[in-house]
C-alpha cells in the first residue's frame, strides 16, 4: 500500500524519530564495533593499536570459536525444532477443545510475556542440583542431574528454558494457521476414509507448511540472537563452554575477558549472519507457498 503526501517535508519528519533511534542505538554502536574490530586495545582502554585484520585471523584460528559455532548450531536447531513440535502439538489439541477454549489459549500464551532472564531464573531454580524440584525428582529416579558439571545437561537446560518461552509465540501462529484451514477439507478427508492421524499428516500438516517454515526462520533467529538472558541466568556459557553460544561469547570475551577487539570482530561475523538470515527470511517468506 502506498500513501502519497502533497508536502515534501512531512513524510521525512514523520519517520525522523525512528531514524534517530536507529542511528543512535544501532548504526552508531555498529560503526564503533566495526572500527574496534581493527584495533587491539589494552584491558583498561588506555591505548589502541591498529592491527588490520589480525583480530579476524585470530578468531578463525581459534578452536574455541568453532566450538562455540557448533554449540550455537546444536542449541538453535534444538530450540527451533522442539519449539515448533511442541507448539504444533499444543495448537492441534487446543483447536479441538470446545469448552473453556479461551482459558486454555490464554494460559498457553502467558509464557511469552515473561522476560527471557526471568524464564532463565525460573528454570534454573527448577533444575538447581541442590534445591530444584525437577533435579531432585530426576535424582530419585536414578538420573543424576548437575548442569554445573555435565555439559550435555547444561545444554538441555538452556534448550528447555529458551524453548519454553518461544512455544507461546509458535502456538499462536499455529492456532491461527489451523483455524484458517477450511473445515470442509477435514470433513472431505474424513469422508475419504482418512483416520485422524492421516488427516493430520496428509492434509493439515502440508497446509501448515508456510506457517511452519516462517516459524523455523523466526525461531532460528530467536535462538541465535535473543537468548542471551536465558543463558546468562542459567549456565553463563558453562561448563567448559558447552553452552557458550556465539552471542554469549561476544559478551564474555568483550566484557569479562576485556578483549574488545576480538569481541568486536565476533560481532561483525554475527552481523553478517543476521544479514544473511534476513535475506533468507525476506526471499522465502515474502513469496511463501500460497494455497
Amino acid at each position: 500500500m502506498s500513501v502519497y503526501f502533497p508536502q515534501k517535508k512531512l513524510p521525512y519528519l514523520l519517520v525522523l524519530p525512528q531514524l534517530v533511534i536507529t542511528a543512535i542505538f544501532f548504526l552508531w554502536p555498529a560503526g564503533q564495533a566495526v572500527l574496534q574490530a581493527f584495533y587491539r586495545e589494552d584491558a583498561f582502554g588506555l591505548s589502541q593499536q591498529f592491527v588490520g585484520l589480525e583480530n579476524f585471523v585470530d578468531l578463525f584460528q581459534d578452536p574455541l570459536y568453532y566450538k562455540s559455532m557448533m554449540v550455537t548450531m546444536v542449541f538453535s536447531f534444538s530450540v527451533a525444532f522442539l519449539g515448533i513440535a511442541v507448539a504444533l502439538w499444543l495448537a492441534v489439541m487446543a483447536d479441538r477443545v470446545i469448552r473453556g477454549k479461551m482459558v486454555y489459549q490464554t494460559l498457553l500464551v502467558w509464557p511469552y510475556a515473561v522476560a527471557p532472564a526471568l524464564a532463565g531464573v525460573l528454570w534454573w531454580i527448577l533444575f538447581d542440583p541442590n534445591i530444584g524440584p525437577v533435579a531432585l525428582f530426576l535424582d530419585r529416579i536414578g538420573l543424576h542431574w548437575n548442569h554445573f558439571l555435565d555439559g550435555d545437561q547444561a545444554m538441555i537446560l538452556v534448550v528447555i528454558s529458551a524453548t519454553w518461552k518461544q512455544i507461546s509465540y509458535n502456538f499462536l501462529f499455529f492456532l491461527a494457521g489451523l483455524q484458517a484451514i477450511p473445515r470442509s477439507l477435514i470433513e472431505a478427508a474424513a469422508i475419504d476414509g482418512a483416520s485422524s492421524f492421516k488427516r493430520f499428516w496428509d492434509i493439515v500438516f502440508p497446509l501448515l507448511s508456510p506457517t511452519t517454515f516462517f516459524l523455523l526462520v523466526v525461531n532460528l533467529v530467536y535462538a541465535f540472537f535473543e537468548t542471551f538472558g536465558v543463558i546468562d541466568t542459567t549456565t553463563q556459557g558453562g561448563p567448559d563452554g558447552s553452552t557458550n553460544t556465539l552471542v554469549y561469547k561476544v559478551f564474555k570475551d568483550g566484557f569479562i575477558g576485556l578483549d574488545s577487539g576480538g569481541s568486536a570482530a565476533q560481532s561483525i561475523v554475527l552481523m553478517a549472519i543476521v544479514g544473511l538470515m534476513t535475506v533468507i527470511q525476506f526471499r522465502f517468506i515474502e513469496r511463501k507457498v500460497q494455497y
Binding site: 477450511p182 470442509s184 477439507l185 470433513e187 472431505a188 478427508a189 469422508i191 497446509l207 494455497y291
Partner: peptide
Amino acid sequence: DIAMVFQNYALYPH
C-alpha cells in the same frame, strides 16, 4: 459408503 460434494468443493489444495 457415501461421497459428498461440498459448496466450496473442499479440494486438497496441495
